[in-house]
Nucleic acid binder design. Sequence first.
DNA 1: CGTTGTCAAATAACCAGTTAGTTGATTATC
DNA 2: GATAATCAACTAACTGGTTATTTGACAACG
Lengths: 202, 202
Amino acid sequence: MPQEPRARDAEATKARLLQAATDEFAAHGIAGARVDRIGAAAKANKALIYTYFGSKERLFDTVMDTHVARVLDQVPFTPEDLPGYAGRLFDFLLANPYQLRLASWHRLERSGTGHEPDGLRVSMRQKTDAIAAAQAGGQVAAAFTPEDLLAFTLALTNAWMPTSPVAATGQDARRHRAAVVEAVRRLVADGSPAPAADPASA
Amino acid sequence: MPQEPRARDAEATKARLLQAATDEFAAHGIAGARVDRIGAAAKANKALIYTYFGSKERLFDTVMDTHVARVLDQVPFTPEDLPGYAGRLFDFLLANPYQLRLASWHRLERSGTGHEPDGLRVSMRQKTDAIAAAQAGGQVAAAFTPEDLLAFTLALTNAWMPTSPVAATGQDARRHRAAVVEAVRRLVADGSPAPAADPASA
DNA sequence: CGTTGTCAAATAACCAGTTAGTTGATTATC
DNA sequence: GATAATCAACTAACTGGTTATTTGACAACG
């Protein structure tokens, strides 16, 4: 229940640390992140990082788990409408710019260490299974394997992002979104593709 | 003329340092790289890094310049045959696994600092211009802007790589290559796409 | 008063960059 | 062709500063 803010509130301090850690890790990665900066930005003592999270690396893992859960929760997956999924994912990534940077840092610094974010592997499996079912049901063309289709959809959605501390410039973003959706549509299109939808649609 | 190897050979030492730096930076990025390790791996004194390259960051820039030049040199761009280009780029990245990691580290750690690799911006511009010309000539469908087309082609080519200290397992790689080529084909296909080419072609 | 949240200070390891000096080859001089 | 001067290539040891992590004391709350 929402209590009025206590002077000493471990949960609130934890949350501030997590937010500060998100910014720091997104900007500098694990090796480049500074524990002191995280503590300062959270207006908390850096020793609390060790009481609450154990170590810098475990703090990073916690940040990853949190944000992976957020994407999975906020961007519903629709196997029979991959272009729509791509569009929604695009919107989410545009609104949460650190997501992609965090994921990149993870791939480079943490991958292969057996510290994959909670639920990522499971969610990937669910998605490919769902795509396979949609293909079996004829709703999605079977030109690609489910794994390829998922990988390509994600790759196309990210294509315009990495460029982008700046790329989020409203008008451009809308055009890019339409292009991404159309590109995914072409991947799942059956033999005879419908004429391209009007790219002016949001 | 080729002289027999001198005991003290600045060029050879420089080359060893550059090779060691490539491995170290690809594995750990700039912040995570250790100058001592680079020196040790190159069997050279670490002070030579500073006489020859100036600083850790300038060493990284030199590594990037070298490897960007290598891709641009070894993977010819064919605006009228983007699927073929994607296939060749795929092969190159498969044979040079650190390329993508170096590029990722650069995006994350060096981007926006005004230290873009030599010739990258120029080469991007040339490529988009060439695509625009091919579109004007009707050889490539105009459903996407040249920038979109290039970004998507690169994104699709990279899609299967990041997974990949392990992904390079011969049989899988061949299937993924075919899928990438087919995906790009669908992007540049005009209204009525030809039936997919036989994926067995190299 | 005891438990729990907080913090300033200490610690020990680490690391980029420097410096003062050595080694070895090349060149100028007799 | 021997000798000495010269310079580039290289090296070992050090420095000044940084960094993750720990500790021990203090304050708030029940």
